[in-house]
Amino acid sequence: MAKLNLVGDIGGTNSRFGLVAQGSVEITRIERLKNDEFGSLEDVARAYLDRQGIDELAAAAIAVAGIVMEEDFLLTNRDWIISRPKLKGRLRTERLIILNDFEALALSLPHLKEVNLVQIGGAALPPRRLKIVLGPGTGLGMAALAPLPQGGWMALPGELGHVNLPVATREEFDLREAMTEPGTVFESEFAVTGGGLLLIYRTITRLAGRPARLSTPEQVLQAALNGSDRDAVKTLDHFITWLARLAGDAAMMMQAQGGVYLAGGIAPSIVKKLQEGSFRRVFEEKGRLDLNAVPLYVIMDDFPAFKGCAAALNQPPL
């Protein structure tokens, strides 16, 4: 029996794994494990393989949230040290690729099915143009995907979450100022993330002299979507405006004629608001140049990073 490839998507709370045949991007036997129950990435990955009855692998590709280094490095939201030699030994494989999570998402883009994408405006352009993927979750990640002349793709991880929050109106400026700690630079991911939703909401209620009735990002999002809290509704409006402006800025900087893709857990949950509101208009507004033709998609696939990991294993080394 042919050996299988392992794909993994490692977050701060959960580790997700699946298996894929060599040369394929169709993932099987997907399972989610709680990181608190394990002491290291090697432990949780080996536990998954043991549960699947897998002794040895053909290869493995693991996506992690954080900056990937060649030497040992620490996960961003987990005190696990990633060591390639140790991980290869526990997985019993000679080939291991470790990717940034948005690098894996970028590599997934050519392999996503139409049924798992919701398009919000733009034209249908030739597929082999530069694409970008970004998305708010715990942080605000981004990567670009560039076509190579000889075929295939190159993923280019970025750090969109650490640029300044783009404000354009007096109301936005005042709100950003009220959210900013003295002596700090207000980064985009302080607002355009799950935690950012809560910060915006608390600041809006404080400025209005009202108590903050909601205490979690999930509560703020739900109240905004059902219209039960006016401050939550205003919070989501600001959140969407800033997400649109950041997506437009990134598309303009990279000339992403192949499309902009929104990933993560928040975008799919607000897809109707993105379709119906001002999101597309704000995304396109860039002065002398515009982004009218650039297609924008929301990724609805539950595990797109797995496809990117599989694609990385299928590509020849650059």
Rank of each mutant, 00 (worst) to 15 (best):
L225H: 04
R230D: 13
F306H: 03
P157N: 02
S269E: 15
V298M: 07
P211Y: 05
A224H: 15
S15P: 05
L99C: 02
A21I: 09
L318S: 12
I97Y: 05
R46A: 05
M154L: 09
G11H: 03
R213N: 14
R84N: 06
E42Y: 08
W80V: 03
V7S: 04
K273N: 15
L96T: 07
P149I: 09
L96I: 02
I27K: 02
I200C: 13
G141D: 08
V271A: 10
E70I: 12
T216N: 04
N314I: 05
F279Y: 04
R95I: 07
R170A: 15
L313V: 05
A65H: 12
A247H: 03
E171P: 04
T203K: 00
G194D: 11
S15V: 02
A305K: 04
L156S: 03
S15R: 01
T193D: 13
F306P: 01
G308A: 00
G265E: 13
L96Q: 07
T169F: 06
E189C: 06
A60C: 02
F279H: 10
Q222E: 15
R280F: 09
S215L: 13
T180L: 01
G137E: 06
L214D: 03
L4W: 03
A310D: 09
E284Y: 06
L57A: 00
L105Q: 13
F279Q: 12
I240R: 14
G11S: 07
G194I: 13
K3E: 15
F239E: 00
A212I: 08
G135V: 11
K34V: 15
G265L: 07
L274S: 00
S269F: 08
E31S: 12
K86H: 10
I27N: 12
P147W: 09
M254Y: 14
R128A: 13
G161N: 00
H238G: 11
F306S: 03
W153I: 09
N100R: 00
I81T: 14
D229M: 09
G248A: 06
Y261I: 01
G183W: 03
Q255Y: 11
Y48Q: 02
M300P: 01
G121A: 14
A212Q: 07
G259S: 06
M154R: 15
M179H: 04
D55P: 00
L296P: 06
L289M: 15
N14Q: 14
M69Y: 14
I200S: 14
V25A: 12
G264Q: 11
R230G: 09
K131D: 02
I132C: 07
N100I: 01
L96G: 08
I240V: 13
A2C: 05
Q219K: 13
A58Q: 12
R78D: 01
A144Q: 06
I204N: 01
E284C: 10
L33N: 00
L198T: 07
A60H: 02
G89K: 03
N314L: 07
I67V: 13
G152A: 03
A47N: 12
S40A: 04
A144H: 10
V25S: 04
I270Y: 06
I240Y: 10
